[in-house]
């Protein structure tokens, strides 16, 4: 007796349209993460500039999605799963916009880092960390569109690996700075980039939590363990 289709099919079309925009935004953000990481590793300023410019498209899509969500709320007065869907769309678009900003910030720092001596294999390590976050984002968006709470929970659990990568890089950059003060400028920029990627992981986790809420109606466990211990430990 239950059904997935609304009696008013135009409501279904509104919801499909707004979710398609979320997936489009997600695709742009995935690309921004990868491109920012590659431009950092290859010290390619032109590629970094393209990432900075592309962020405008991500910001514009967030605006469009929020306007569309407001329109659906005003016209359809959604309740139950439809209300949770619209709320999740608003939150996910904000998460994606923020991840896009972090990618843009990485690209901004690439210009400065390209003018400084490279610090060990830090570019490669950051690219691997960014690649992991990009995979998490892809899975989080797949979980969202397929209403797969299990995959969403897996994404939430994987954030701990990103936190551990950040911890390792934090220690590494600290060591390089202590070894040679001439590394300080580059290492500070690299540390901000590592922190940006770690925060991207948190936003991806938030997207996965929205999926769990959308599917189950229950918020994911807020007390998940976090592995970023750099703010509470003397190293």
């Amino acid at each position: 007796m239950s059904s997935n289709q609304h009696i008013a099919s135009v409501f279904d079309r509104d919801l499909e349209t707004i979710q398609a925009q979320i997936m489009k935004m997600g695709g742009l953000v995935e690309e921004a993460i990868l491109e920012a990481a590659i431009s950092l590793e290859t010290r390619d300023e032109e590629r970094a500039e393209a990432v900075r410019k592309a962020d405008k498209k991500i910001d514009a899509l967030e605006e469009t999605i929020n306007e569309e969500a407001a329109r659906v709320i005003a016209l359809r007065a959604p309740i139950a799963v439809d209300l949770r869907l619209i709320l999740s769309v608003i939150k996910i678009s904000a998460n994606l916009e923020r991840i896009g900003d972090y990618a843009k910030n990485m690209a901004k720092r690439t210009g400065v880092l390209a003018s400084l001596a490279p610090v060990s294999d830090s570019g490669g390590a950051l690219r691997r960390m960014a690649r992991e976050v990009e995979r998490m984002l892809k899975d989080a968006l797949d979980a969202y569109v397929n209403r797969d709470a299990e995959l969403a929970q897996d994404v939430i659990d994987r954030d701990m690996e990103v936190d551990q990568m950040y911890n390792a890089l934090f220690r590494e950059f600290l060591t390089f700075m202590m070894e040679d003060p001439r590394n300080i400028t580059a290492c500070m920029h690299l540390h901000f980039i590592a922190k940006n990627i770690e925060r991207m992981g948190d936003h991806v986790t938030s997207i996965a939590e929205q999926t769990v809420y959308l599917v189950t109606g229950v918020h994911a466990d807020e007390n998940r363990s976090k592995a970023d211990t750099t703010s509470v430990q003397v190293l």
């Binding site: 239950s2 059904s3 609304h6 009696i7 008013a8 139950a80 209300l83 949770r84």
Partner: peptide
Amino acid sequence: VFANPTDPRTESYITGRIG
């Protein structure tokens, strides 16, 4: 009941999927 109904029939009805 309106934010998170437990029975799928309730959800389908209140969201306008069944009449």
